[in-house]
């Protein structure tokens, strides 16, 4: 015979007892008014707990939250676009400079060389021209112009990048305060 404790009554309510145990509990409930009273009260609590209703968040809750989420998801995209555009710009600039150098060298070598010149001569002529062009670019005034130009680009990019980081941080901390 099992002892009918509060634990057993709870298990009986949840249908967690074996057939034999259920029989013993039901028999005990039939024979004891006090036990029946306790069990009925427990059942009343159990039934009433199923009627708990949801509390509702404020009307503006979802709107505020979604604003934060949209901000959060757009900030990294903006950063990616910015970095991609800076990289593209620099690449394009390098390509233009390189293309311009090559075309300048080709026109210089083709005007000085005759049709009878061999392929080897034209390649060596091209490389000599390239070296000359690079020497001109990276010496004296050419070097300072290129250096200044890239420094300005780096400074501008750095400024925008720093501002973007600041804005993202501010958005996140605003979000946490909400």
């Amino acid at each position: 015979m099992i002892q009918i404790t509060d634990e057993i009554l709870n298990k009986y309510l949840d249908g967690e007892l074996s057939v034999e145990e259920v029989k013993q509990v039901e028999s005990a409930l039939r024979n004891s008014d006090e036990l029946r009273r306790k069990f009925n009260a427990l059942k009343l609590v159990h039934t009433n707990l199923f009627t708990i209703t949801e509390d509702e968040v404020s009307d503006s809750f979802t709107e505020k939250l979604m604003k934060q989420i949209v901000k959060k998801s757009t900030a990294p995209k903006q950063q990616k676009y910015f970095i991609a555009s800076v990289v593209t710009f620099i690449t394009l600039l390098c390509l233009v400079i390189f293309g311009f150098s090559i075309s300048a060298m080709i026109s210089a070598t083709s005007s000085s060389a005759g049709n009878s010149q061999s392929v080897l001569d034209s390649v060596s002529g091209l490389s000599e021209g390239l070296v000359r062009m690079l020497q001109q670019l990276f010496s004296g005034t050419g070097l300072s112009i290129i250096g200044s130009f890239f420094s300005i680009i780096v400074l501008i990019s750095g400024y925008f990048f720093f501002e973007m980081q600041k804005r993202t941080k501010a958005n996140l901390s605003n979000g946490q305060r909400l």
């Binding site: 949801e54 509390d55 509702e56 968040v57 809750f61 979802t62 979604m66 989420i69 949209v70």
Partner: peptide, 16 residues
């Protein structure tokens, strides 16, 4: 990301 609203609507009151 805007679809997250459907999860918010589904769980906000119960979690609250």
């Amino acid at each position: 990301s805007a679809d997250f609203i459907f999860l918010v609507d589904r769980y906000k009151n119960k979690a609250f």
